[in-house]
C-alpha cells in the first residue's frame, strides 16, 4: 500500500470517528429534550406538580395552535421581535460608536471614566418608568429599554478591547504614515472583532430582558404583555407558551450572531 493511500485511509477513519462522536452527542441531547417534556406532561397529569401553575406540554401545544390560527401570536411575536432586534442593534452599535469615540479622545475617556462606572453599576431597568413617560408608551420607549440595558456595558467592554490592541500594530501602520482613522480601521477595529462578537452574544440576552420588562410596564401588545396578562388572569399556560417562544427566538438570534462571527472572523 503506498503511503498516500494510507494517509487517506487514516483520514477517513478519523472522519468516521468524528461523525460517530457527533451522533452520540445528538442522541443524548434529543433524549434530554424528550425526557424533559414527557416527565413534565406525566407529572402534570398525575398531579405531582400543580397543573394550574406549571401547565403541561399538551395544553401549551393546544394553546399554541389556537393562537396561531387566530393570528394573535404572530402579531405579538412580530412586535416583540422587532423591538428586540432594533434594541439589540441600536445598543451594540451605539455602544461600539461610543467606545470608538473614547478611543479617539483619550482625554474624553479619562474624564468620562467615573461616569461610565456609575452608569454601568446602576440597574438600567429602573429607568423604565422615566423612559415610558418621556417617550410615550409605544415602540420607541420599549426599543430604548432594549438598547439602554446593553449600551454601557458594550461601551466599556469594547473600549477596553480597543485600548488593549498591541501598540506595535499601530507602530507598523504609523511607519507607513497612517492617520488615526486608518489605524482604527486597519488594526484597532479588526483586532477587536472577537470581543465585539462576544458582547453581541451577551447583548442578545440583555435586549430581550429590556424589551420584555418594557412591555411589562407599558405595552398592550407583545410577548411581554402576553406574560403579564397571563399572570393577571392566572393563565399560566399562556405565560409558559410565551416563555418557550422567547427561548426559541432568542436562540435563533444567537445563531444569527454566530453566523456573523464566521463571516467576520475568517482567520479563526
Amino acid at each position: 500500500m503506498n503511503p498516500k493511500n494510507e494517509t487517506e485511509q487514516l483520514h477517513l477513519q478519523y472522519i468516521k470517528r468524528l461523525n460517530k462522536g457527533h451522533k452520540q452527542i445528538r442522541f443524548y441531547q434529543l433524549l434530554i429534550f424528550l425526557a424533559f417534556f414527557s416527565i413534565w406532561e406525566l407529572a402534570s397529569r398525575k398531579n405531582w406538580i400543580d397543573p394550574l401553575l406549571f401547565s403541561s406540554p399538551s395544553k401549551i401545544w393546544e394553546l399554541l395552535q389556537t393562537k396561531l390560527t387566530d393570528g394573535s401570536l404572530a402579531a405579538n411575536l412580530g412586535i416583540t421581535l422587532t423591538e428586540t432586534v432594533l434594541g439589540f442593534i441600536l445598543g451594540t452599535l451605539l455602544g461600539t460608536c461610543l467606545a470608538a469615540l473614547l478611543w479617539w479622545s483619550p482625554l474624553l475617556s479619562k474624564i468620562l471614566d467615573p461616569y461610565l462606572v456609575v452608569l454601568n453599576a446602576m440597574p438600567k431597568i429602573a429607568l423604565g418608568p422615566i423612559l415610558i413617560v418621556a417617550l410615550g408608551p409605544n415602540l420607541t420607549s420599549i426599543v430604548a429599554m432594549g438598547a439602554i440595558i446593553s449600551i454601557i456595558i458594550t461601551t466599556i467592554v469594547v473600549f477596553t478591547s480597543f485600548r488593549e490592541v498591541d501598540h506595535n500594530y499601530l507602530k507598523v501602520l504609523q511607519t507607513f504614515g497612517a492617520t488615526r482613522f486608518q489605524c482604527f480601521k486597519e488594526a484597532v477595529l479588526p483586532a477587536s472583532f472577537p470581543t465585539i462578537i462576544s458582547t453581541l452574544k451577551v447583548n442578545v440576552g440583555l435586549s430581550w430582558v429590556g424589551v420584555i420588562v418594557g412591555e411589562f410596564l407599558a405595552s398592550s401588545k407583545g410577548l411581554g404583555y402576553m406574560i403579564i396578562y397571563g399572570f393577571q388572569v392566572f393563565d399560566f399556560t399562556l405565560v409558559l407558551l410565551s416563555l418557550l417562544i422567547i427561548a426559541v427566538f432568542a436562540t435563533l438570534m444567537y445563531q444569527a450572531v454566530e453566523l456573523l462571527e464566521k463571516k467576520l472572523i475568517k482567520n479563526g
Partner: peptide, 11 residues
Amino acid sequence: YMLQQDYLFPW
C-alpha cells in the same frame, strides 16, 4: 521599519 517581531496582521 521592521519591528523586533513580525507583527503581521493576523486578520
